[in-house]
Every structure is written in C-alpha cells, then in structure tokens.
Amino acid sequence: MSAGTVEIRRSGSTAVLTLRREAKLNALSTHLERELLRALDDKAVTTSRAVVLTGGDRVFSAGADTGELREMTPEAITAYYRDSGAVYEKVAGLPQPTVSAVAGYCLGGGLELALATDFRVADATAVFGLPEVGIGILPSSGGTYRTVRAVGPARARELVLRGRRLSADQALAWGLVTEVCEPGAHLEQALRVAGELAALPPLAIAVTKRVIDAAADTPRESTLLLEQLAYASLNQAARPATEDPT
C-alpha cells in the first residue's frame, strides 16, 4: 500500500511506514509530512499493535526541507506547526510502541522524527546530528526537548549548539539510540523489537508509555500517584469477568 511519498505495509501485527523520497534523501517537505500524517491515520496503522518507521536502506532522512521554511513569514510558520508540522507530536503520541529503523543520515528533522519514536535501532552506517544552529535556526519539532531528555543538557549542547555528528556507536554510547546492528539489518532488528512489544497487552503499553513520558517532567510524589492510579486502572481492566452469583 502506498500513500505517495510514504509506503504503508503490515508485517504481522506491526505497521511499517517507509519514507519514499529517496532522490531528496527523504528530506521532510511539508508534502511528505502531510503524507505521513495521513499514513498514521490509515487503518493498517490504527489497527496495528506496533509501528516501525524507516527511510529504507540508504538514508533515514537528511533533515527538513529548509528551503520551504526559509520563505515563510512568522504567521505562516505558526500555521505550519498546526498543520504538517504536527506530525512529530502525532508520532510521539501514538498509543502503540514505535521503533525507528535507521540507516545512513539521520539529521535535523530526521533525527527529530526518530526521537519521537520510543526506540531507535541503527545500523552501523547511521550518522546522527542536529545542524540547525549552524544555519541560523534551531531544532523546533521537539528535537531540543527530546535530545535533552535522551542525553542530558551537556551532551545536548554538543549536538545542538556545536552541531556535532555522531556515528551509530557513539549515538549508542550517548543513549541516543537503543541498539546498533550490522549494515542492512536495521529493519529486521526493528521488526524483531516491534514484534516483542506487539505481543504485550496493548492497554498496558499505551498507559505505561504515558506514565513514562510524564515521569521525566513530574515531581516524585506526582509520578508515584500516576503509577498507582495507572496500576489500579490496568488491574481492573485485566481482571477476568465473573458471572453474577445471583
């Protein structure tokens, strides 16, 4: 199945979304972002138990199509974040577990998209970086926020302010990616991870994802309360129905 620049297919209970703008190194144009938004609402995705996002065998994404944004007024940029620019938070908010399968360049907006997923599997060819400050802007699709959460403020400054590029092994050592595999094995390994997650109770996955996200920015007492309320809710949902004794 294809949605233009985004290919949609199922692998068992996992939905696989592949960016298909190879001639432009999967640069994230507003058109591609809208296609990805539409793909996320496709039945093959909404009925899946896990989602894998990839750019193919050569490149994940070399970044946003900055030429488009350069021409925008401040008003148009504000509108952009409500339109196609909302795709990054849409990915981050999916109830299913999400895995990025990364080969080659994963730069700028491409890294922001990968950071919006729960897990990042990189093959040995992957290169990660956030070059935005060097051209006078900054990562603005959750990239600054999620980079700090992933690697801490000091290393985030290396990536965001200095524009440092990381190899797959360096990204693993920094905590930016979940695991590294042999060249060309990223999709297979991402599907393996997704398959393990898809076998888990979907409600428990969805609720626990939300609690983990909240825990990073919530005081201890509030996080403990969230855990306890979530546990009570999940425990009730998991309880088997019993017959009416009367």
Results as ranks from 00 to 15, higher is better:
L111T: 01
L113E: 02
T98A: 11
Y88D: 14
L69G: 00
V133W: 07
L94N: 08
T117M: 02
V193L: 15
A116N: 07
P74A: 10
P95K: 05
D65I: 01
V87A: 07
A185D: 13
G110Y: 00
A171M: 03
S140A: 14
V180Q: 02
T178E: 07
S140K: 03
V91D: 10
R155S: 15
G129V: 01
C181T: 15
G110E: 00
L107M: 12
D118N: 09
P201W: 09
D123W: 01
D118F: 04
E179M: 05
L200W: 09
A76V: 06
P139M: 06
G142V: 04
M72Q: 09
D65E: 14
P95C: 11
C106F: 02
S140E: 11
G110S: 02
P153H: 14
L115N: 08
Y81R: 07
G163Y: 12
R164E: 15
L130G: 01
Q96L: 13
G108Q: 03
S140N: 11
V127T: 06
G142W: 04
P183S: 10
V148L: 12
G93E: 14
V127L: 05
C106E: 02
G110N: 00
A171Y: 00
G63S: 07
T144N: 06
P97A: 15
R155W: 14
A103P: 05
A185Y: 09
A194E: 06
S141P: 02
A190K: 00
G143A: 07
E132Y: 14
V151M: 11
V193T: 09
V91H: 09
G136W: 10
L191M: 02
V59K: 02
F128N: 00
C106T: 05
G93L: 12
E182C: 08
L130C: 03
V160T: 06
T144L: 13
S100A: 15
T66S: 04
T125F: 01
